[in-house]
Amino acid sequence: MSADNAGYILAAYVIAIAVTGAMIVSIASDYRALKRRLAALPARAEGDAET
C-alpha cells in the first residue's frame, strides 16, 4: 500500500465511521431525552396518549 493511498483509505473509513457514529449517538441521545421528558410528565395523562 503506497503512503498516499493509505491516507485516502484511512480518511474514507474515518468519515464513514464518524458519520455512522454521529447518527447512532444522535438517535440514542434523542431517545434518552424523550424518555426523560415523558417520565417527567404526570402519569395520569399517559393512558390518554397511548395511541
Binding site: 415523558l38 410528565l41 404526570p42 390518554d48 396518549a49
Partner: peptide
C-alpha cells in the same frame, strides 16, 4: 406522544 401529553396538560 409527548406533544399530545403537553397539549392535554
Amino acid at each position: 406522544r409527548l406533544r399530545r401529553l403537553a397539549m392535554l396538560a
